[in-house]
């Protein structure tokens, strides 16, 4: 238990032998730390258990999955991954992953660019009708998604975009996600304007100021936006379900459902195995972006 740094290291008496009081204090600190950490470990384990079980069960045989609630597989097998990857369709999961990326990548890039531009406009410039436009932008945040589904569907049908990825990522290129715009605006508002003014005095035009000064300072916010957009898009089920009808174009989220529908006796281990794979990109991206997510580079340039 001495490894815990929050246990006070009471100095021992001059001859090196701890006094009775010191022993008592040390014992009490250790007991309280032990209780605290045990509680945290137990609760943490309960929270993470479903995920552990998911990973464990993906290595189990179909019979074992329902035989034991414990996550550790008795006879680990890769069969779930092999079968799941093949799928019951003519395509492998690789196709579905590529499809997902064809939606996610343009959507994330589009979101980053368009939301930054729109947020910069709202946060830094005065133009006629700004207040009204901003109010409308915020109002769309309050609009439930389902309300716009049907009009949007009709619109995209008129454009001939059904069964393409365009309806899924085109709105993101037009700053369609008011939440992200709002997030960046809030971040920008906290950044003093002097740096941008200094850049203008240094001879930068509006666009150069945005690229050389604002975007680098905004990096943590933009990374967060990309991260959220990546995860939400990877996990989006309803969007592709409405607009994508050809199996060949299915993204991962739809493909997972496909493997449940297609066979009568579900191969649960292959479904679970593919679920684990479907989770992986989001997790990898999250851990990669974590540093920049947390690092606040906006501090330091201006005395606060």
């Amino acid at each position: 238990m001495t490894a815990f740094s929050d246990i006070p290291q009471t100095p021992s008496s001059h001859d090196g032998v701890p006094t009775a009081l010191q022993l008592k204090l040390r014992r009490r600190a250790r007991t309280s730390a032990a209780i605290r950490y045990t509680l945290l470990i137990v609760v943490g384990f309960i929270m993470i258990y479903p995920l552990l079980w998911l990973v464990g069960a993906s290595f189990k045989t179909n019979q074992e999955i329902f035989a034991s609630p414990w996550f550790w597989p008795e006879e680990p097998t890769f069969q779930g991954y092999v079968d799941g990857w093949k799928t019951s369709t003519p395509y492998t999961f690789a196709t579905f992953f590529i499809n997902s990326m064809q939606i996610v990548i343009p959507k994330v890039i589009g979101t980053a660019i368009s939301c930054t531009l729109v947020a910069y406009g709202f946060a830094r410039f005065d133009f006629p009708g700004k207040k009204v436009l901003f109010a409308i932008l915020i109002a769309t945040l309050l609009l439930p998604d389902v309300v716009t589904r049907i009009p949007q569907y009709l619109l995209f049908r008129e454009l001939g975009w059904l069964d393409t990825y365009l309806p899924l990522f085109a709105p993101a290129w037009l700053a369609g996600d008011a939440f992200f715009v709002f997030m960046i605006i809030q971040f920008l508002r906290a950044i003093p304007r002097e740096m941008e003014e200094a850049a203008r005095v240094d001879g930068a035009n509006t666009f150069q100021t945005l690229i050389y000064i604002v975007v680098p300072i905004l990096t943590p916010a933009i990374v967060s936006v990309c991260l959220f957009q990546f995860m939400w898009t990877m996990n989006d089920f309803l969007g592709p379900l409405i607009y994508i009808s050809t199996v060949e174009k299915y993204p991962v989220s739809l493909a997972l459902k496909l493997s449940i529908d297609a066979t009568e006796a579900f191969n649960w281990n292959s479904i679970l195995a593919m679920t684990v794979l479907a989770l992986t990109p989001s997790l990898v991206v999250f851990f990669m972006a974590q540093k920049s997510f947390i690092e606040g580079i906006s501090t330091g340039g201006v005395k606060g």
């Binding site: 003093p192 501090t299 340039g301």
Partner: peptide
């Protein structure tokens, strides 16, 4: 121009 809060580019 020299600004009160320096306005150096932090990155």
């Amino acid at each position: 121009m020299v600004f009160q809060n320096y306005a150096l580019y932090p990155h």
